[in-house]
Design a protein around this nucleic acid. Structure first.
Length: 542
DNA sequence: ATTCAATGGACCC
DNA sequence: TGGGTCCCCTTGAA
């Protein structure tokens, strides 16, 4: 015993890396080495024969494996690896923390034709010339009254959302497992889950324009379903894998889906680049599939023009969004090809006039084409925005606000987190795509997960979000009519408690115990947070 | 508290 | 064109 402990000091240390006079110097955190003493285990009587080892390690960055710095969370703030290009805008020479796009989101606006995204040196020098970026990013808006309803009934992550076309309180949700959820968020606890419609990922869905009681869905199981929302009775409109599983090279998955209301045709696209059409009334597949994207690549989005439904917008993994006239459809017959630097995860015509185009790409840019009648060679604007995570999460998609007559308001979830009073939160951003300005950020201190799936209500000031397996409905408690609608369309956020209480629904409950409709009582909220959050958890646990 | 795995695209050859 | 490998802020279960 005693000899052993004494031996520790005299025993030669096994040192990894260098630096032997570590003893006292290790207290300084800045650049000092991290010392991992093994003394406790060594002194343990069980390990009599073991030689005492002191391992001295230098800080090693987990990203670049170099020493002298460390990437990762420090508290709620993520420190980037300085050896890598900016995680947000992808340009070298700075990190996310100092990225000009993070300081002022409008900075991301690049008018076409692009200038300063092509040359990184020029980019860096431009920062020197323009060192004082005006701090126009709005402060977090914390209204005194908010609503946020939460429900969790999906067993896998949410992949898509759709509001009911006539019933204002119904939200439909699809998940990675293929389940279709129907939530009457007006009654909060009212929900239905249909689990046997699809066998895997439900990628996109759209209501039948001629019958708002039924919805079409495209799934990775290779089928289009048409489901009666009331009864859950579903029929398959198309099955691309009639012979079942014959290996990954032949298994076809359906991703993009839209309905041409003029022709009563459902359009879907698969993971091999092909477009299919099915007649709604006869349930027949029309014609043969057409290759609309690079062969073998996934077509993730389809969108029919609201005014001219024969105009089709598609996007996919071949880095293009493409415009088609479905009356003259054949491989290579696209009217325009909108080039992107990486995968295009969504592309939409503007909801009212149909003359703008909005795309989301994994190069961390939202792109806008102001007029389909103008020059489509370059986007009118590129807005830098963090949404490039492609693993484990549903792809982010910027979605129009159909209520905005100027067709400039867009919602999109944010991947990168913000240190918000000690909590790393992932806001949902409202962006004015005409100016690039970040109009609003929605977040709640108790929602610590990322919300990649977002949809704005077609008629009301309601935002629906899908975050992991949970669904959220956000709405302002009251609209300030005196304010111009463009200025503050949406009121947001919850209050922040420094002591982070539990996340929503992470205690394994499902359904009603998890449903939270909060801030009904403003007094409760304004007064003291602890009582509020405790009432929160007590409700959960009861 | 820590570990693990599911999983998709880029890039290399 | 295809297989192998790598990969910065995940999420939730073990």
């Amino acid at each position: 015993m005693a000899p052993q402990t004494r031996r520790i000091s005299s025993f030669p240390e096994v040192v990894i890396e260098r630096d032997t006079e570590s003893e006292e110097s290790s207290s300084e955190e800045e650049e000092a080495n991290v010392v991992l003493p093994e003394e406790e285990t060594i002194q343990d009587s069980n390990n009599k024969g073991k030689t005492p080892i002191t391992i001295t390690l230098k800080k090693v960055c987990k990203v670049c494996k170099k020493t002298g710095h460390e990437a990762g969370f420090r508290g709620a703030t993520y420190i980037d690896c300085p050896m890598k290009p900016c995680f947000l805008c992808k340009m070298p020479g700075h990190t996310t923390v100092t990225c000009p796009h993070r300081v002022a989101t409008e900075y991301g606006i690049v008018p076409a034709p692009r200038k300063n995204t092509t040359n990184s040196l020029e980019f860096v020098f431009q920062r020197q010339l323009q060192p004082r970026v005006p701090p126009i990013k709005p402060a977090h808006v914390i209204p005194d009254q908010v609503h946020c309803a939460v429900i969790r009934y999906h067993s896998r992550r949410v992949t898509c959302l759709e509001f009911h076309p006539t019933n204002n309180n119904i939200l439909l949700s699809g998940d990675k497992k293929g389940q279709l959820g129907i939530w009457d968020f007006g009654k909060v606890h009212e929900k239905t889950v249909y689990g046997n419609i699809h066998s895997c990922m439900l990628n996109n869905m759209k209501f039948n324009p001629t019958n708002d009681g039924s919805i079409y869905a495209a799934s990775s199981d290779g089928t289009i379903s048409c489901t009666d929302v009331e009864t859950g009775i579903s029929l398959a409109l198309m099955n691309l894998n009639p012979n079942g599983w014959e290996g990954p090279s032949s298994w076809r998955m359906l991703y993009g889906l839209d309905v041409n209301s003029d022709k009563n045709v459902v359009l879907v696209a698969d993971n091999f680049g092909y477009l299919y059409m099915a007649d709604i009334r006869s349930n027949n597949i029309m014609s043969k599939p057409t290759l609309i994207h690079k062969k073998g690549t996934k077509v993730v989005g389809l969108n029919c023009n609201p005014l001219q439904p024969d105009l089709l917008l598609s996007c996919g993994n071949d880095h293009f969004a493409r415009i088609w006239d479905i009356r003259r459809l054949e491989a290579g017959s696209s009217l325009y090809n909108l080039e992107h630097k990486r995968v295009v995860s969504s592309a939409y015509f503007s909801p009212i006039s149909g003359s703008k185009i909005l795309t989301t790409s994994l190069d961390n840019r939202i792109r806008v084409w102001d007029s389909i009648f103008g020059n489509l060679d370059y986007p009118s604007r590129e807005i830098v925005h963090s949404h490039d995570f492609n693993r484990y999460l549903t792809a982010f998609r910027a979605e129009w606000d159909a209520k905005d007559s100027s067709e400039s308001l867009v919602v999109i979830g944010r991947y990168i987190s913000e240190n918000y009073d000690g909590a790393a939160l992932h806001p949902i951003d409202f962006v004015n795509v005409s100016t690039g300005q970040l109009v609003a950020e929605v977040m709640d201190p108790k929602i610590t997960t990322i919300s990649p799936v977002n949809k704005l209500h077609p008629r009301e000031d309601i935002l629906a979000s899908g975050s992991s397996r949970s669904l959220f409905i956000w709405r302002p408690k009251k609209l300030d009519v005196a304010q111009p609608r463009e200025e503050k369309r949406i009121l947001l956020c919850g209050e922040v408690s420094k002591k982070r209480s539990k996340k929503h629904g992470d205690n394994g409950d499902d359904d009603s115990d998890n449903d939270i409709f909060r801030s009904k009582d403003n007094a409760l909220k304004q007064k003291k947070l602890p009582s509020k959050s405790s009432s929160y958890s007590s409700r959960k646990n009861s």
